[in-house]
């Protein structure tokens, strides 16, 4: 089960839940399950530009097809910019 962590902004959509466990093979599946649990969260993530995920510390900017290893730690964050 992957551990998904929600930022303070995102907790507004999760009813205050900061962390949940989800069984998902890919980020796409994880997002689908998140949307079932918290309707509107995908729109919120898009709207707040939180379109990247960090999986076990590795930030992936465009992650939909990314595999989610069992017991991965997942954060939903903004893709980074840089100079």
């Amino acid at each position: 089960m992957a551990q998904v962590h929600f930022s303070s902004n995102q907790r507004r959509l999760t009813g205050g839940v900061a962390e949940i466990e989800i069984e998902a093979a890919t980020v796409r599946e994880l997002m689908r399950k998140l949307e079932e649990m918290y309707p509107g969260i995908r729109a919120h993530l898009d709207q707040t530009s939180a379109t990247a995920v960090a999986i076990d510390g590795d930030i992936i900017p465009d992650p939909m097809y990314e595999p989610v290893p069992p017991d991965a730690e997942v954060h939903l964050i903004t893709p980074l910019a840089g100079g």
Binding site: H5, S7, A54, D56, G57, D58, I59, E73, H75, I77
Partner: peptide, 9 residues
């Protein structure tokens, strides 16, 4: 745990 979320590598 880094302040922005994930664990530091």
């Amino acid at each position: 745990q880094a302040p922005y979320g994930p664990k530091w590598p």
